[in-house]
């Protein structure tokens, strides 16, 4: 009797183990599929200008808001500005309310895609909650463009 009991126990355990493995497989598959479509790459202005990015492809753009470049489009709600890495420039349009710490000369990160005219249509603009903080993407953009100065504070 104890033998058969042990066997049943073993079988019950195997069921659980198999269910677990199946679940693991499903979640790994889901994760891989999702990774394929949803990883968002990061580019700086220089890379966009020199290597080009397909219009419509979502990516993150980092850099500094160029001085004297911020304006409003005629509709009164679309913000236009230029993101620079002090080497190349990208024009950005963002409809909506800019974050509280958005300033000229500040580092920002924007999520969006280029349109056919090469303008970056942002769906989201991030400036961090601290004025001394430089978004790592903005730093990275300037490093890639070779315009990063080490006197600037890194991180927060």
């Amino acid at each position: 009797m104890s033998m058969s009991r042990a066997r049943t126990r073993k079988r019950a355990r195997m069921t659980v183990v198999f269910a677990g493995l199946a679940m693991l497989g499903v979640s790994v598959a889901l994760a891989l599929l999702a990774f394929e479509d949803n990883i968002v790459f990061f580019y700086g202005p220089t890379e966009i200008v020199e290597q080009g990015v397909e219009p419509g492809q979502n990516f993150r753009l980092g850099g500094l808001v160029k001085e004297d470049s911020v304006g409003l489009a005629n509709d009164g709600v679309t913000n236009l500005f230029i993101v620079t890495d002090n080497n190349a420039n990208v024009e950005v349009a963002f409809k909506g309310i800019l974050p509280d710490l958005f300033r000229e000369g500040q580092g920002i990160v924007a999520l969006g895609a280029l349109n056919n005219e090469g303008r970056f249509i942002a769906s989201e603009v991030l400036a961090k909650h601290d004025e001394n903080y430089m978004p790592p993407e903005a730093v990275e953009a300037m490093k890639r463009a070779g315009t990063w100065k080490h006197t600037q504070e890194e991180g927060n």
Partner: peptide, 17 residues
């Protein structure tokens, strides 16, 4: 590469589970 994984990834994995 420097990449970010945003809400679309989590929506595609978390919600089906």
């Amino acid at each position: 590469d420097k990449v970010s994984v945003g809400p679309p990834y989590f929506n595609a994995t978390f919600v089906p589970l």
